[in-house]
């Protein structure tokens, strides 16, 4: 019996290993995640956009164009981190695997999410005009199965805060955005 299935089983083993091992080597393997977290839902809305002296956070960030610039800079800074960049390995492929958004589509979603949270007219989740038809998902659906740990999440927020500060965003506004990002943590971290 064993001999009969020996060849197929050995092949199966090699295939599974090959599919998963092309990217990792060394003394210990990189961590996988565990099962999903409890809270679901989207991060839409949630703030009044941090109104201050008659201006809203949305206008202080420069509206949709300003937020696009900030999202571009945040994503560029995030992927300079080798651990974070690895999570986007599928998204940078061209084309990405079926059902996986491209980095531009993720950015379009992020712009709508931040715009919405900052009090702008953007809707989240939804299908941004420049997402080539990609429908942004709620935070839990978008991140389930990625195995994002609390430490990775904290790195992500630290980098994003640094980018916003470098771009000249005021501490109070970073605090508002930080609160929005942190509000997604239970949906993202596994």
């Amino acid at each position: 019996m064993l001999r009969r299935f020996g060849a197929p089983v050995a092949l199966a083993g090699i295939l599974v290993l090959a599919a998963c091992s092309s990217t990792s080597s060394g003394t210990t393997s990189s961590s996988g995640g565990s099962s999903s977290s409890s809270s679901g839902g989207s991060s839409s809305g949630g703030t009044d956009g941090g109104s201050d002296g008659g201006t809203t956070l949305y206008t202080r960030l420069g509206g949709n164009t300003g937020i696009k610039g900030a999202v571009d800079a945040i994503v560029a800074d995030e992927v300079k981190d080798p651990t974070i960049a690895a999570f986007f390995g599928d998204n940078v492929k061209s084309p990405p695997p079926a059902g996986t958004p491209t980095v531009d589509q993720i950015k379009a979603c992020l712009v709508n999410q931040l715009g919405n949270a900052a009090g702008g007219p953007e809707k989240y989740p939804g299908t941004p005009a420049d997402s080539a038809g990609f429908q942004c998902r709620d935070m839990k659906t978008a991140h389930t199965g990625l195995g994002i740990s609390s430490d990775i999440f904290d790195k992500f927020v630290t980098i994003a805060a640094g980018t916003l500060k470098r771009l000249g965003v005021a501490d109070a506004d970073i605090a508002t955005i930080g609160g929005v990002l942190n509000g997604t943590k239970t949906s993202i971290v596994e």
Partner: peptide, 21 residues
Amino acid sequence: HTPLGKPWLMKIGGCPIDESP
């Protein structure tokens, strides 16, 4: 490796989310 399958992949120890050099 599809979005639908990823949670199961992670449950069985997972293909490390990683990228090639």
